[in-house]
Amino acid sequence: MNVKINWDALGITASVACAIHCAVLPLFLTTMPIFGFEVINNLAFEVFMIILAFGIGSYSLYHGRKKHHHSYLPLIIFSFGISFLLAKQIWHHYEVLLLMPAVLLVVSAHYYNYRLCRRANHCHEHDCNH
């Protein structure tokens, strides 16, 4: 059985999950300690999410560039997004201002990569699903 993974879809999903986590978390901050969960400034979780986004995104965008469209632009856009995510961890007081462009850039890089893969002349339906 040959399973094909759409790495762009997985990357977008991871980025959106990260954004939802960051947006919804403040709503639950008052009730989480009651249940014994300490999620405020949980560095391990934040680093895990950044590493996950970086790993999936890097593989997806590298694969798209190498096998389909040969453009570095999605990787450049993605690099800026990851840079904003890392900056968010350093400058906590600007977290919201840094998170918005980070998510927008990472998701945009995956979407642009997806579109470039679809437009590649040699790309057939079964080849573009990674």
Rank of each mutant, 00 (worst) to 15 (best):
residue 42 N to L: 12
residue 68 H to Y: 13
residue 24 V to S: 04
residue 95 E to V: 07
residue 108 S to T: 13
residue 103 V to N: 03
residue 7 W to N: 03
residue 78 F to G: 00
residue 29 L to P: 05
residue 66 K to V: 14
residue 65 R to Y: 09
residue 84 F to E: 04
residue 51 I to L: 15
residue 36 G to K: 06
residue 109 A to V: 06
residue 56 I to P: 07
residue 127 D to E: 12
residue 38 E to Q: 12
residue 3 V to N: 05
residue 88 K to V: 09
residue 126 H to P: 06
residue 50 I to Q: 09
residue 3 V to F: 02
residue 20 I to H: 08
residue 99 L to S: 13
residue 7 W to V: 05
residue 115 R to N: 08
residue 77 I to P: 01
residue 104 L to E: 00
residue 33 P to M: 05
residue 117 C to G: 00
residue 29 L to K: 14
residue 11 G to N: 02
residue 109 A to N: 04
residue 61 L to S: 06
residue 88 K to M: 14
residue 18 C to T: 15
residue 72 Y to V: 10
residue 82 I to Q: 10
residue 122 H to Y: 01
residue 7 W to K: 10
residue 55 G to M: 01
residue 113 N to F: 04
residue 24 V to L: 14
residue 92 H to E: 14
residue 49 M to I: 09
residue 31 T to L: 06
residue 1 M to G: 10
residue 71 S to Y: 06
residue 53 A to S: 03
residue 126 H to S: 02
residue 4 K to V: 08
residue 99 L to F: 13
residue 113 N to G: 11
residue 34 I to V: 10
residue 24 V to T: 11
residue 59 Y to C: 11
residue 128 C to V: 10
residue 45 F to L: 13
residue 125 E to P: 00
residue 106 V to L: 08
residue 43 L to P: 03
residue 27 L to T: 10
residue 23 A to K: 12
residue 49 M to K: 09
residue 4 K to E: 11
residue 20 I to A: 14
residue 128 C to K: 10
residue 125 E to I: 00
residue 74 P to I: 03
residue 81 G to C: 07
residue 56 I to N: 04
residue 69 H to P: 12
residue 130 H to N: 08
residue 57 G to I: 08
residue 22 C to V: 03
residue 11 G to E: 01
residue 37 F to Q: 05
residue 104 L to I: 07
residue 59 Y to Q: 07
